[in-house]
Write a protein that binds this DNA or RNA. Structure first.
Length: 554
RNA sequence: GGGCGAGUGGCUUAGCCCGGACAUAGCGUCAGCCUCCUAAGCUGAACGCCGGGGGUUCAAAUCCCCCCUCGCCCGCCA
């Protein structure tokens, strides 16, 4: 809709001026769309931009295609304000279930996210990956793509060898009520402390690494057991965060199925290959200083080789390959992309996000310095329950618990997804536990408020003819939703949706303040109820795409 | 040392790709609003050399160059 207006107006300007870019921008408070084309025409024609804007506005007004649009030159700007049809069509679309769903696309997308090493619980840094990834996944589905979400399980890393060494050599019994991933972290941290004290342990870890690479059955069993247990813990955390994967892909499978060997053989024949003691690629022509090592001198593969095999497999089975990775993977991500390109394979698109740290510094699983996602979830549910109990003492405990769970989830997911990924952040308990303004619960509250109005109203005849300034403001904000979904998947930036949802709630709260709905009468009441229905549905679709429950009461 | 990212009122943050009309919002501060549809809300005020310096342009938070500060990376780890 908004996109259509852009096209119609843009074409009209191009036709009237003969330029190929109508220089349309958002009109902000002045208009729905505005063109600054008069500035560039001024240069060409050597005339004043104000005069040209006026002339052009006059010409455009005569264009029958723009009959519904109010056109006015204000100084050098040409402002376009959409008419009643635009507004009523927007509301008509927005009351429909699934509003914002875009046309189905015959494009298969594979999205990898989280993929944390299974050596300890997910912490508040990992879940930035999960939440960005899961929100993108939801947006892709809404945008009509066929999607598979994968978790790449790094099950043959050095950290896992350290975990296994710990289980073999230290006091490692699981404690009463201890979650699997927390248990593994405890053993991993203890094992690292032992390594610090006694360097000879490193030799034993190296031995485990060789055994796993060679497929020694007993070692494989041990690795797999601990990794699986850790993943079981992750799955509980991710379920609590409403984050879902379709498939867990194990790194070691790419050794077992021969894909790693195959890609190494292919890489050997590349002109960039340097096959001395190690096999490495010289990517200096692409501005990568260091050699990209693929195979060790002892003949075993490194992570990069298995990752290339994994990505080649994804490239063969999907049309688009998207990875969500932390900023620490920028260099290796770029090397991977570069290598895939020279192999003639589909190049993965990588979404990077910057680090989450603690006020006291970087997080480290090995050093036991982290805030686990589970602790955050527990704490936030507790706080949310207190809040719900204070606000709604009349509700029974189960209902309050259920609301608290949804509110807690909203607070966590929104707090993380609202920040643009290129900002590094410092985890702050106070902000994470805030349920007011610019928070997930704030948006849920606006939705619940709309639900409450609709419930009290019962049935009503729909009316799409809006009148007042506040009504039209809200309807125009609602109208932007499909374009927001489009932008999220195009730019791979889910925080755009987070910002939009908050602004939509803001707009509704202002509307709510100025325009009585239930207390108005006749047509006014009907059109406002219709608008509230459209708003409620748009908020619901927005929240659900953000992975947040659109609860009806809170 | 090199590469990448960030720097926007006291704090957090949008806008930057694609340059335009008084820079977005929240927290905090101050002044108000619950006999009225859920106050997890609303209205108003104060608070800004958009890190610094050059440049391009009719026009720069946005583009280019230099510098400063912070984060991340530069392994035969993953």
């Amino acid at each position: 809709m908004l996109h259509d207006m852009h096209t119609i107006i843009g074409d009209a300007i191009k036709e009237a001026t003969g330029t190929d870019d109508p220089l349309l921008t958002d009109g902000g408070e002045h208009a729905d769309l505005a063109s600054t084309i008069a500035f560039s025409l001024a240069k060409q024609k050597k005339q004043a931009p104000v005069k040209l804007a006026q002339e052009l506005a006059g010409d455009l007004k005569k264009n029958p295609a723009l009959a519904e649009i109010a056109i006015e030159a204000k100084g050098p700007y040409i402002n376009f304000v959409f008419g009643r049809d635009y507004v009523s069509n927007a509301v008509r679309a927005a009351v429909q279930p699934g509003y914002g769903n875009l046309q189905k696309k015959a494009v298969r997308v594979v999205l990898e996210h989280t993929s944390a090493n299974p050596n300890g619980p997910l912490h508040v840094g990992h879940i930035r990956n999960s939440i960005i990834g899961d929100t993108l996944a939801r947006a892709f589905i809404k945008a009509g793509y066929s999607l598979e979400v994968q978790y790449y399980v790094n099950d043959m890393g050095r950290q896992i060898a350290i975990v296994v060494w710990g289980f073999d050599n230290l006091d490692s019994a699981q404690r009463e009520g201890e979650k699997e991933d927390a248990h593994i972290a405890r053993v991993y941290i203890a094992a690292n402390q032992e390594i610090q004290k006694d360097e000879s342990i490193t030799q034993q870890v190296n031995l485990l690494m060789q055994l796993i690479e060679n497929g020694d059955p007993a070692t494989v069993r041990k690795f797999r057991r601990e990794v699986s247990r850790c993943l079981d813990g992750f799955k509980v955390t991710m379920k609590d965060l409403n984050v879902a994967h379709d498939r867990f892909v194990w790194e070691s499978d790419f050794i077992r199925n021969g894909n790693t060997e195959r890609i190494i053989n292919k890489l050997k024949r590349m002109p960039q290959a340097r096959d001395d003691e190690t096999l490495a690629l010289d990517l200096s022509e692409f501005d990568f200083e260091n050699p990209y090592v693929i195979r060790r001198s002892d003949g075993t593969s490194v992570y990069a080789a298995r990752d290339l095999a994994y990505h080649a497999w994804k490239a063969a089975n999907f049309d688009r390959v998207i990875d969500v990775l932390g900023a620490d993977h920028k260099l290796i991500g770029a090397q991977l992309q570069c290598t895939m390109k020279i192999l003639g394979e589909k190049v993965p698109e990588i979404v990077h996000f910057e680090f989450v740290s603690l006020p006291e510094g970087s997080m480290s699983t090995r050093a036991g310095k982290f805030v686990s996602a589970d602790d955050l979830i527990t704490e936030i549910r507790k706080r949310a329950f207190e809040e719900v109990t204070a606000r709604r003492p009349e509700l029974d405990e189960d209902t309050r618990k259920s609301i608290a769970q949804s509110v807690g989830l909203a607070a966590i997911r929104y707090d993380i997804v609202k920040v643009s990924p290129e900002k590094s952040t410092v985890f702050d308990w106070k902000e994470a536990l805030d349920f007011e303004r610019q928070s997930g619960p704030y948006i849920q509250y606006a939705h619940a408020r709309a639900c409450s109005i609709l419930e009290k109203a019962g049935t009503f005849p729909v009316c799409f003819e809006l009148e007042t300034e506040q009504e039209i403001l809200l309807a125009k904000k609602i109208a932007k939703f499909p374009q927001v979904i489009e932008n999220v998947v195009f730019e791979l930036r889910p925080h755009i949706l987070a910002i939009y949802a908050r602004e939509l709630a803001d707009t509704f709260n202002t509307f709510y303040h100025y325009e009585p709905v239930l207390k108005s009468e006749g047509e006014v009441r009907n059109r406002r109820l219709t608008l509230v229905k459209a708003l409620q549905n748009t908020l619901k679709e927005s929240l659900e795409t953000l992975g947040i429950d659109a609860i009806h009461s809170m």
